[in-house]
Design a protein around this nucleic acid. Structure first.
Lengths: 263, 263
DNA sequence: AAGTGGTCTAGACCACCGG
DNA sequence: CGGTGGTCTAGACCACTTT
């Protein structure tokens, strides 16, 4: 990341970058109007047509220009404010945020993270079987002790080097997890394509020294610092869908994310 | 955390727990009506008057009962959906989410975290001075190399034991940071009370072994696993407000947080 | 004083889900 | 089919910020 010394960027008063932007709405489309507008504003920001600091122009004018009601325009703007792309100030206007916003922390899988980073991840499934839940797993998944759960142990590599050892538990009745599919994609992707909509997760991120077994698997020295993550994910009915206990090679991986402060 | 084996909880059709709940609005209050409503619903959920799985009752009835317009009621409900407390399903209704939602990951300080956990944190300021920015700090804060920045080194303890070593850099012109106030409160609290509104932050969480100096400060052995966090925080004009490089004793601290999946 | 976003109203029609 | 949330309209008044 290189430092960027911005010249203070201001729009001339009364003018705004949006006025010269073509905004087209398709009222026959099934896509909501506010969403069409939000998408166009977002891409204008991404492509620099709306530069950081630019004022958006007031909502009333915009709604007149587009032939939309003001609440609809507000809904579009609100969605971008929620994403952190815009800032509204009463009495001032709506501005494009200066700092580059990357995606906020998501409930994404390591697989997606690595793939997005252009590193072709591979997975070796070390274990994939159904067992009765031990006490700790039962507690995490909120199922009775001894209930059948699927246990999954996977070793993830990128560019030939091991990056993480992943241990996951899922309520067995939830879905089938064929080993060959697990080796070609991420667990979370499989959950989504099985129609499970994840709603929330509780995570804990820590660190500890590698055990002998972990060291051997991950090609590290015993006692080397490992990043650990435990996570229980829930669907929108509140069912626990997955409990994972992962260790990452700290020398090869760190969690990076963007946080947004909600007012 | 103890496992809770929930009995499937369903409201009788046509009935909903909200109907017996007193909801009072004060139209003379400066607090927006949608916010008054949201607050009351939220506390009803927290206190169990609205149990997980309960249907909220449809929006139209609720708006009639309260003498509000439907958009206003929707705005209240939307704010709770955004917080992860409620789930809306078209054709079904609005339900209280089953799983207990803790606060999502916030741009909070370690100080606040510890204090919220009931552990009285103490801070010793090891260094508090103004220096010219080195290249890496200048890059992180997006200021010219050599610009004056405040450097802060603090050792945080809880229950007499060291927990973290915190190193922070701030653009010097931003605010005064008297050492005595730093020892009695958190940095982020000071930023907020100085009128700075934080907007976003980029974080990176990793791990590594302790150096000899860190080991001595933190009462660990050399090479012991430490949790590391680097963060640059921005205000809503996009200015970098703070760059921090922290190390935590992994044996005493982990990051815990709740993630919400936004649809 | 003028202009901005923040809140609120009283309707309307549509899309989706369940029985 | 009836009931639900999802979208949308055309206004209104208020609170705040800047000039």
């Amino acid at each position: 990341m290189s430092p960027v010394h911005r010249t203070p960027q201001r729009t001339a008063p009364g003018d705004h970058a949006l006025s010269s932007l073509p905004l087209l709405l398709d009222r026959t489309s099934p896509v909501p109007l506010y969403h069409q507008l939000a998408r166009q504003l977002e891409s204008a920001i991404e492509q620099g047509a709306l530069a950081p600091g630019n004022l958006l122009g007031n909502e009333v004018d915009l709604s007149v220009r587009l032939g939309l009601s003001r609440p609809t325009v507000r809904q579009a703007i609100r969605s971008l404010v929620d994403k952190g792309l815009l800032v509204r100030r009463r009495g001032v206007g709506t501005q494009v945020v200066h700092s580059k916003v990357r995606r906020p922390l998501e409930l994404s899988s390591l697989y997606d993270d690595l793939e997005a980073a252009g590193q072709r991840p591979t997975t070796r499934v070390l274990r994939n079987e159904r067992i009765p839940a031990a006490a700790d797993v039962a507690a995490a998944l909120a199922v009775p002790e001894g209930a059948e759960v699927t246990v999954l142990e996977r070793l993830r590599r990128t560019r030939g080097r091991p990056v993480a050892f992943l241990c996951n538990y899922l309520p067995a009745p939830l879905l089938e997890l064929p080993t060959e599919r697990l080796e070609s994609t991420g667990l979370y992707r499989m959950l989504r394509s099985a129609g499970l909509t994840l709603h929330s997760a509780r995570q804990s991120v820590g660190a500890r020294g590698a055990t002998a077994g972990e060291a051997a698997l991950l090609d590290e020295a015993e006692g080397a610092a490992l990043l650990t993550m435990e996570r229980t994910a829930y669907d929108d009915t509140g069912r626990a869908v997955e409990y994972g206990s992962h260790v990452y090679r700290a020398s090869h991986y760190a969690f990076e994310f963007q946080l947004l402060v909600r007012p």
